[in-house]
Design a binder for these strands. Structure first.
Length: 531
DNA sequence: CTGGGGACGGGGCCC
DNA sequence: GGGGCCCCGTCCCCA
């Protein structure tokens, strides 16, 4: 028992020693970490003080600039931009350039503001704000460093500066223009900025807070993501300005000019993201791409000359695209070309038509897709993949049929003097260009007239009007024999054969007569194995 | 039940 | 824009 007691006592003492040692180790670690935290806190506080001083200097500088910029010309420019933002002004290059900077690499590329405004002195008043900011921002950092407050966190957050790049060089890189553009946008986009008194430091504070947050968060992955989104197309690209034009108009028209700051708030990335909405950019690019790739449409007829009754916005858009592309075709080529004499151009079109059939996958997809988009009914009639080819087969089959049934039979025969305007697909002649355009829709599949009751679309307005009787139930044509009513006169005429017993279609084999041609054809197919 | 034919409604297209 | 023709799909009747 005594030995056991001694053993337990020794174990207890050993455990106590170990516990004490562990506690001491923990305390030591806590003390070390606490010291590190204190050091970092103190460094952060120092950094904050430096930044505050930097802010004060910026405010002073900007206040001085505002004094210089408070001349009426400056107010005029800013107010003019306000008016344009409200939609009062037309979309000029000035507006576009003023908005466009969001997606440009360098602010210097966006400085055409001065050129657009056309008034060097007044616009300088705007632009001078930015150099003042830029100069004030960098010296602020320099001054901060010169104070000997080496900030490891700052170096960690800003690797570009830590790498030893001069601040000026950093300003020339991609992030700089974003900040510059944003600051300009905030100042100019805010209506009260120019109208408020010069002592209104709140606006300045907002602006500088934006600048401050932007520079502090330069390494933020989200900001970098914005930089990626804001990565503009190559200089000279025509897409982005177009996109910004329309988008800017929508934005300002709906919300008002103070919304940029409201949207941006403390997070300038929001304001930036609003202007550089990536979701909208592909739209503009897509439209442009469609325009550029619709080569095949250049050979189809123009749609816009007759106008479309389509009330659906998306269809109208598609039509506009088609119209623009097709506008490349000289509308008077039939009249100008010596088709009647030599058929040289007609042969070219025929050759092209052949290329269409053989290279369908290359030449026609875009336009066919456009037609499919334009005509959901026809798109639903067959597999989407084969829709184009099916459609073209139908088109050219009907074309052959039409040519066979055409009195003139094309340009090579018939009334050449009356039908000088030829279809570029089937060479059929028409008396006027409008008729050619309408006819060529048979080949292109463009159906501009859509029913408001259903999804049916029609090539001709008369067809739509006739179709609408299906929905209205209107039957204006009544049979005088049986009082039966019909929606169409030709149907009434067909019905009258019931009463008259007229059977104009006789079988050449058995002499059986039929009231309809189709009945005769079916009869001959089944009974006489013809066709 | 099935096939032939009539009748009808609707779309395409041209004049 | 309307008339007219063609074609097709569908329904119905009847042998």
């Amino acid at each position: 028992m005594d030995n056991g007691m001694v053993f337990h006592t020794q174990i207890a003492s050993i455990m106590e020693v170990l516990a004490n040692a562990a506690v001491a180790e923990i305390c030591k670690l806590v003390d070390d970490d606490y010291a590190v935290f204190r050091l970092e806190i103190s460094q952060s506080q120092k950094e904050n003080r430096g930044l505050r001083r930097k802010l004060q200097q910026l405010e002073l500088k900007v206040a001085r600039e505002r004094v210089l910029a408070s001349r009426p010309s400056s107010v005029k420019i800013l107010d003019r931009y306000r008016g344009m933002a409200r939609g009062e002004g037309h979309l000029t290059g000035g507006h576009r350039s003023f908005v466009k900077p969001a997606g440009h690499n360098t602010w210097r590329d966006d400085q055409p503001i001065t050129v657009d405004e056309g008034s060097g002195t007044s616009t300088q008043n705007i632009i001078m704000i930015e150099p003042a900011d830029a100069e004030a921002a960098d010296p602020g950092v320099k001054q901060e460093r010169s104070e000997g407050e080496e900030d490891p966190r700052h170096s960690r957050d800003n690797p570009t500066r830590a790498a030893g790049d001069p601040p000026v060089a950093t300003e020339d890189t991609a992030p700089a223009p974003l900040r510059s553009q944003r600051s300009i946008t905030e100042v100019s986009g805010m209506p009260n900025t120019a109208l408020k008194s010069e002592t209104d430091t709140e606006t300045l504070t907002v602006t500088h807070r934006l600048l401050h947050t932007e520079s502090d968060h330069r390494s933020d992955p989200e900001r970098q993501g914005l930089g990626r989104l804001g990565c503009p197309p190559a200089p000279g690209s025509e897409y982005l300005p177009v996109f910004h034009q329309s988008h800017r108009m929508v934005h300002t028209r709906g919300d008002g000019y103070g919304d940029e700051l409201n949207i941006g708030g403390d997070d300038p990335s929001c304001s930036y993201a609003t202007e550089m909405d990536p979701g909208n950019m592909p739209l503009g690019l897509e439209i442009q791409t469609d325009l550029s790739r619709g080569d095949w449409n250049r050979y189809s007829s123009s749609v816009h000359s007759e106008g479309c009754l389509d009330k659906k916005g998306e269809v109208i858009v598609v039509d506009e695209v088609t119209v623009k592309v097709e506008g490349d075709v000289p509308p008077t080529w039939n009249a100008e070309s010596p088709l009647v004499e030599g058929h040289s151009q007609g042969r070219d079109f025929l050759d092209y038509r052949g290329s269409l059939e053989t290279n369908l996958n290359i030449a026609t997809p875009s336009s066919l897709h456009a037609f499919r988009d334009l005509d959901p009914v026809s798109a639903s009639m067959g597999p989407s993949d084969s829709h184009g080819s099916v459609r073209f087969d139908q088109v050219f089959n009907s074309n052959d049929r039409a040519k066979a049934l055409a009195p003139g039979g094309g340009a090579t025969s018939g009334n050449v003097k009356e039908k000088r305007f030829l279809c570029m697909f089937c060479n059929k002649g028409f008396s006027c260009p409008q008729k050619v355009e309408i006819h060529q829709r048979v080949h292109t599949g463009v159906k501009c007239f859509s029913c408001t009751q259903c999804q049916m679309r029609f090539v001709q307005a008369g067809d739509l009007k006739r179709h609408q009787r299906v929905h209205t139930g209107e039957k204006p044509y009544s049979c005088p024999q049986c009082e039966k009513r019909f929606s169409r006169q030709d149907h009434l005429k067909m019905h009258m054969k019931v009463h008259t017993g007229e059977r104009p279609f006789a079988c050449t084999h058995c002499g059986k007569r039929f009231s309809e041609r189709r009945c005769l054809r079916i009869h001959q197919q089944k009974n006489h194995s013809t066709l």
